[in-house]
Design a protein around this nucleic acid. Structure first.
Length: 567
DNA sequence: GATTATAGCGCG
DNA sequence: AAAGCGCGCTATAATC
């Protein structure tokens, strides 16, 4: 049953949409005052309801705060962004663009939030009808169009499920032990300075650096001053990047690299970060579903997707609980094998280590070469080791490499490419198109032509990677959506034991996501079955997307007390 | 003083 | 080994 949620002049309202609905305006609106009423007032089995609403990120945190869990939804704003490229009728409607992040606001249901756009119930219903029309192949459509629509429907439900997962993860939070974090900072940097300034140990490293360069004092935090100091000391570098410095043999390099590492830790994840982002033993990042063009998630604030490995030991399970940490092994090459139906690459992916599979298949001689070659194919390496190994990959896996090559060529022509489920790449900017056009005219200089070709290749590398990164993101969404459902019933002997409409903090739940990695916080007794659910969900995600493609989606799964225990 | 841009580094 | 994708964040530097 589809139930639309929006606002009317009396406040929050719902409308039941009938299956037979074919565009008539008749629907029954139901005024609600309390969150529980939304579910209870309908008198339907909560498990069968799919909530149609403007924006999960705006409404679901308030429901969760009130203890209400939602089984399924359709996030109109996220879905609009995906569909806008497929159906002109949905293009450029400002009402459905992505919302700007709201300033901090304690969520309470039904309160008046200044600046929040409250989508009218009638408009929610109207937009849903528009989207549904875009998802149905016409009566004269061929198989290709029917498949396209079916994939889009899967993509939209996966994206919407992702929005639920993101809100629930923010609700639960990643367990985070501020004391462990503080100890780690103190050990590396020295005690927290009371009135700002550099911690002792960091200052000592800075002093060592200045002394070793022997060119007088300067501020090592300033790239300009640092570069000048390096030059004065006779060190010939044209930037202060780590990898360039690593090649220099000079007594100042060791303290310099140490200083960069420590000052980075202080600035990005020091005590200020701890104060801002960790409350009540939980780190609660703001996930932005579909925040990256490829469909990957982003975060706003907290840098959840860049948690330094150094600090992961601070993430500790509650007493009596475990962290179940799982990451998909070589996800992108496996996704490529599946979407390209490359049986050879699928065979190499059969074991737990795809890169070793390349070695065993005689394609390359070492695992390191396999990795650099595969990444080169996904990213479009032309020179260096990755570029050199490309021909071997192309002859061993013509279908897989052909798929990314085609995507690159399309991008170079300025065309749109699509992920497996149909998320479309953006068009290159107007300036790009103008330069290509100009380079093709008679007036272009050799330099213009060279720049145009360079830019074309740059865009081709982007579209090449887009199709794989984006499809991997789709797999990850399906993985989490399946896992979320499996975790709900974990440890329940009977289905009636599970309250699908209530958020239950005593159950195993997702607490972290990082592109191809998840963490589940689970009662210790359920950790093993949570791990099994993660593995099952990975297989199911592959099946859901690609059918019987022969590609295994291998995982590394660890049951630990601390995230830092995972290599 | 408030803004935008850039360098650099963290993550996948 | 240091080339080749996607990001967010924080500092300093540049600009208004």
């Amino acid at each position: 049953m589809d139930v639309a949620v929006g606002y009317d002049d009396g406040g929050l309202a719902t409308a039941v949409l009938t299956d037979a609905d074919d565009g008539h305006d008749g629907y029954q609106a139901l005024r609600v005052r309390q969150p529980a009423d939304i579910a209870a007032g309908l008198g339907a089995d909560i498990r069968t309801v799919r909530w149609i609403w403007a924006d999960t990120a705006a409404i679901y945190p308030r429901l969760l705060a009130a203890g209400v869990r939602v089984e399924r939804c359709h996030d109109l704003r996220l879905c609009h962004a995906i569909l806008a490229g497929h159906d002109n009728r949905l293009l450029d409607d400002p009402r459905w663009r992505r919302r700007e992040p709201e300033p901090d606001h304690e969520p309470t249901l039904l309160d008046d939030q200044p600046g929040e756009d409250r989508m009218a119930l009638a408009e929610v219903v109207a937009e849903y009808r528009r989207q549904r029309r875009a998802l149905v192949a016409g009566p004269t459509a061929g198989d290709e169009d029917r498949i396209r629509c079916a994939k889009l429907r899967l993509l939209l439900s996966a994206e919407s499920a992702g929005s639920l997962v993101a809100a629930e993860m923010a609700f639960h939070g990643l367990p985070w032990d501020a004391e462990v974090h503080d100890r780690q900072l103190t050990e590396l940097l020295g005690p927290r300075p009371r009135y700002g300034g550099r911690p002792d140990k960091l200052q000592a490293v800075a002093d060592r650096l200045v002394a070793a360069l022997e060119v007088g004092s300067f501020n090592p935090d300033s790239p300009v001053e640092l570069l000048h100091a390096l030059h004065r000391a006779g060190i010939d570098v044209h930037s202060t990047r780590k990898w360039e410095l690593q090649r220099i043999d000079h007594p100042a390099i060791e303290p310099l690299l140490e200083y960069k590492k420590l000052s980075r830790l202080l600035a990005a994840n020091g005590w200020a970060w701890l104060d801002t982002w960790v409350k009540d033993g939980r780190f609660r990042p703001d996930y932005v579903v579909g925040g990256v063009v490829t469909g990957r998630w982003a975060t706003s604030g907290g840098g959840a997707l860049q948690l330094p490995k150094q600090l992961r030991r601070a993430s500790r399970a509650d007493p009596g609980w475990k962290l179940v940490v799982a990451d998909a092994a070589q996800l992108e090459p496996r996704v490529l094998a599946a979407m390209a139906r490359d049986d050879q690459l699928a065979t190499a992916a059969r074991g737990r280590d795809l890169y070793q599979g390349l070695v065993d298949g005689g394609v390359v001689d070492t695992r390191a070469h396999a990795k650099v070659a595969m990444l080169g194919a996904l990213y479009g390496a032309t020179t260096g080791q990755g570029g050199q190994l490309m021909p071997r990959l192309v002859s061993a896996y013509p279908r897989a490499t052909g798929l990314v090559e085609d995507a690159a060529r399309s991008g170079e022509r300025g065309e749109i490419v699509s992920t497996f489920l149909g998320r479309r790449s953006p068009l290159p900017p107007d300036s790009w198109r103008e330069l290509q056009h100009f380079a093709g005219s008679g007036d272009a200089s050799a330099d213009d032509v060279r720049r145009a070709r360079q830019q074309a290749r740059d865009w081709g590398r982007f579209t090449r990677n887009f199709v794989v990164q984006g499809t991997a993101a789709e797999w990850a969404l399906c993985w989490m959506a399946g896992l979320r459902q499996r975790l709900l019933v974990l440890g329940s002997s009977t289905p009636d034991d599970v309250d699908h409409g209530a958020i239950d903090c005593g159950r195993a739940h997702l607490v972290y996501f990082l592109h191809d990695e998840v963490i589940v916080h689970a009662p210790a007794a359920l950790a093993e079955s949570a791990a099994a659910a993660i593995v099952e969900s990975a297989t199911a995600a592959g099946q859901l997307l690609f059918g019987d493609c022969g590609v295994e989606f291998a995982l590394d799964v660890d049951i630990v007390d601390s995230y830092g225990e995972v290599s």
